[in-house]
Every structure is written in C-alpha cells, then in structure tokens.
Design a protein around this nucleic acid. Sequence first.
DNA 1: CGTTCAATTGATCAGCGTCAAACTAGGTGG
DNA 2: CCACCTAGTTTGACGCTGATCAATTGAACG
Lengths: 232, 232
Amino acid sequence: MRDSDIPAIRSLPLFNEMAEESFTELVRGAYVQNFPPHMELIVEGDPCDFLHIVVDGSVELLANWNDRETTMTILREGATFILAAAIRDAPNLMSARTLERSRVIMIPAEDVRAVFEKDHAFARAVVMELAYCYRGVIKGVKGLKLRSSIERLANYLLKLQKKMGGSETFTLSVEKRRLASILGMTPENLSRAIKALRPYGVEIDGNKVSIKKPEDIRVLAKPTPLIDDPRS
Amino acid sequence: MRDSDIPAIRSLPLFNEMAEESFTELVRGAYVQNFPPHMELIVEGDPCDFLHIVVDGSVELLANWNDRETTMTILREGATFILAAAIRDAPNLMSARTLERSRVIMIPAEDVRAVFEKDHAFARAVVMELAYCYRGVIKGVKGLKLRSSIERLANYLLKLQKKMGGSETFTLSVEKRRLASILGMTPENLSRAIKALRPYGVEIDGNKVSIKKPEDIRVLAKPTPLIDDPRS
DNA sequence: CGTTCAATTGATCAGCGTCAAACTAGGTGG
DNA sequence: CCACCTAGTTTGACGCTGATCAATTGAACG
C-alpha cells in the first residue's frame, strides 16, 4: 500500500469518522493491487474474503444465471463493494471485474468485522453506507418494474447530465453495451431507444450526449427523487 | 402496548442481543396499533417517523410511479420495515398497507437512532438486518433481470414449498394478483404461466399448489442459492 | 492496413401487456 | 336458504415492447 493512498481512503465516508487507531488497524492488513482491464476480481458464489474499495479506474458488478449475464452497476473511485457480504461473512452474490486498468484496495473481511465490533463510529458509518446501498437498489427495482426501457434511458440521461454538471452537452462514461445491460435491455434495443428519444431533443453521437429540449424529455421521463435522486 | 407483545419483540433478531436498558428505552416510546385490512400505513415520499414491526397479520410494501403500481414484497409477523429510512432519517421509498387485519408496533425513528448510538449490540443487529435486506433485494434484481416470468414463478413455488415444510401439496399465502405484481407480471400473465407449468407437474387450484414432479420443475427453474436461498 | 469488437440497422419473432368478456367464490341481505 | 353482488381469476383476441438473428458499418488498436 502506498502512503499516498491513505489520505484518499481516510476521507471516504466509510472511514473518515473512525478512530485513528481503528483506521490504522484496517490499513495494516490491507492490500492494494493494480489490475489490468477485464480482470475478474470476484466470482459470484465465492466466500467473501475482502472488502474492496475502488481507488482508481472502474469496476463492474455483474451476475450470472443459466448462461445469461447482467450488469448490476458500475463503480468508480471511492466506491466500496461487497460490504454486505463482508459483514455477514456470506458468499458474494455478484461477480466483479475491472473495466479499465484499476487500483483496488482490499481489506480482509475479518479485520472489517473485528474493527466493526470495537469502533462505534465505524459501525455507524457501515450502517449508513449499507442503508444507502439498500435504498439505491430499491430505487433500481422501482425503475425496472415501473418504467419502460425508454423511460429508464431518459431518466438515466437526466441523472447523468446532473452528475456531469448540468450542461447541455456531456459524455457517456460507460460503454453502450453495458449501459444497455444496466438498464435491463439489449444493446440493439438501446440503439433504438436512443433514436426514439430524438424527437425529444436528445442527440447521441458516440458517447457525446446533448439534450436540446430539457423540458420535453422531462415530460417523458417524469423523474422523481424517490427513484432518481442518488442522494437521500 | 400490551405486555404480552414484549417477549415476542425481544426475541426478534434485531432486538434479542441488546442491553435490557436499551430495549426498555425503545419499548417505552413505542406504540402498538391494530389496523384494519387495506389501511395505508405509510405513503412513499413521507418522512420516516417510525420503525415498524409486524406483530401479527401481513403488510404489503409497494411503490408507485406515473399511475403505475408494483408490489415490492409482503411482510409477515416478525418483519421490520423501513429500517434504512429510519436510520438515515430519509423519506420512505415505499408505501405500506395492511393486507389483513394487522397488529403493528411503531418505534419512533429518533429513538432508534439514539439507541443505535449507545448500544453496540443493537448497532450490530441493525447492520446484520440491513445487510440481510440488501442481499434480499439484490437477489430480487437478479431474478428480474436474468429470468423470464415463468422461471420466476417456478422458483417462487419451489421456495414456498420449502418454506411450507417441503410436502408435495401446500398453499399460496398471497392473492394471485399480488403474487403477479411481486413477480413482475400481470395477473393475466400469471394465470397463463401457471398453465404453462402444468406439463411440469405443477397443479394449482385456487390457492392449493401441488408439485407432482419435483425433478421436472427443477430442471426448468434451475434454482440457485445465490438467488433463491432466503438465508445467507 | 488489417483485425477485432462495438454499434447500428433491418427483419422477424416471442413474451408479455392490454382489453374485454366470462367465470368463479365469498359475502350480504332479503 | 337462496338470489345477488362484488371482486378476484381465468380465458381469448390482439398489439406493443423488446429479444433474437443476421448483416453492415464504424471505430480503436496493433
């Protein structure tokens, strides 16, 4: 582990309230690794040995069943993953693989559980993080069950625009095939959904998106904080 | 609150490890209410004032968007709900309504957060519960995205059979219209899915289910602990 | 400059939703 | 006790959404 990584980790919500001593204990046992793109970090079903933190790059969480595969989400720097499995000492429900060259910190799950027992501030942070993730997944289910694929796409774009600062033009940070899978559709269908949004002033060329008529697409998307607000 | 309710609550995983003192504090501020069927307990978007616990009866968690509605899950005695919102002091993401006459305990969210700060055993239980719920929802998403509606139904039936003790014949405890919504389909479609399972030895009459050829339906359902095991 | 993989497009099809009607079953009141 | 009402369930017909398959275009990289 590089010393230069430490402040970045310490500043994450999960770690920034805990006692220095506990933090040191966690860091002591931690590994840092640089992974090449498309590397499988975790295979679904494996026991959960480490809590992972993305320091740099991006990691895909995905799931398989019966030769089918779906992308659950994509994580970027600062995100932690498989916290729930680490805490419960249960098998991982999702696989993880890098999308690009990525730097990942791995803290032995056992250490996480041990520090969790000792440090109340950390326990508090774990609960907040878990509750946050839980609510995120609930929002995802609501989107899947209540919206058509075009509506999901429209809302995804509005959300991304906001995240990117709100300007008319911004860029997709995810491959379209993966975006399709996240949104619960096929790549072919995503292509068509994109065309279907053209009358609403949405233009997508490569990974450049521009939203010409924000009012129009909002009428279609009908975003609500109860599904689309990543905070709260 | 009836005294007779207390032992039942105390024995729930969420409360059975905590200090007597903390438990008393929680119980002191708690209300118990008997609700008639089809009563709205919580409306999605409202601030979360109480942690709820189902003592008796059953409660539906559901979500709305754009005049559409979907059932997220159904809770029975012993289940707690909106724990995540209570902990984060955030608006409820789901509505809740009783299905039958139900008895529900309501603990002020503020008390929950206060005791959470003081009692480490309780904090631990909250984390376990949240991690458990999180994993439950993840399994749900995997089912929705990776399986067809018939496959979801088949797995639901196998899961229910196990829960009911494993005998060939058992009974549906949920109205079909709600089951359909839980599984992400329409009631009409559920009817057809049921018929489609007949060649696999599944017979459903009213709410009586019998699985004549367990091997056959298992071949179709391909259950896996990573989606269908409610434990872990 | 060719290889490779993603993205697009078109044609076709299956799954599932919608709508309407018929058929239950459980509960109510005469 | 029976007729009737209501609400859930089932069935059929139909159409839309989105998946599949196949072929083409496009873009990145060695």
